[in-house]
């Protein structure tokens, strides 16, 4: 289940940054991707919310540092649904 979420996230990131060659692991964060600036962070979070039909709280948004964090949180939130 977590794997599936991670793969979906990968596609979102590749599409959003318009680059299929981006290497994405669980540890990938804004530090590793040049285009991942604060505006991209907003865009990505809003896209993820739409795609997975969830909503992050302020605290949750603050905690999302790398893609692994994102996948974990999406998994947790989906379980509660």
């Amino acid at each position: 289940m977590k794997r599936k979420i991670f793969d979906q996230l990968k596609i979102i990131f590749q599409k959003y940054f318009y680059n299929t060659k981006i290497i994405i692991t669980e540890k990938t964060s804004a530090k590793n991707i040049k285009q991942w600036d604060s505006l991209a962070q907003i865009g990505l979070i809003i896209l993820i919310e739409k795609k997975f039909k969830i909503r992050f709280s302020i605290n949750e948004v603050e905690k999302l540092k790398n893609i692994g964090d994102m996948a974990d949180l999406i998994y947790e939130k989906n379980k509660k649904k």
């Binding site: 959003y16 318009y18 896209l47 739409k50 795609k51």
Partner: peptide
């Protein structure tokens, strides 16, 4: 609209 948001950077490049 979500599809558009996903493809914004691609469109900007164009």
């Amino acid at each position: 609209l979500t599809e558009l948001l996903l493809n914004k950077n691609k469109l900007l490049k164009l």
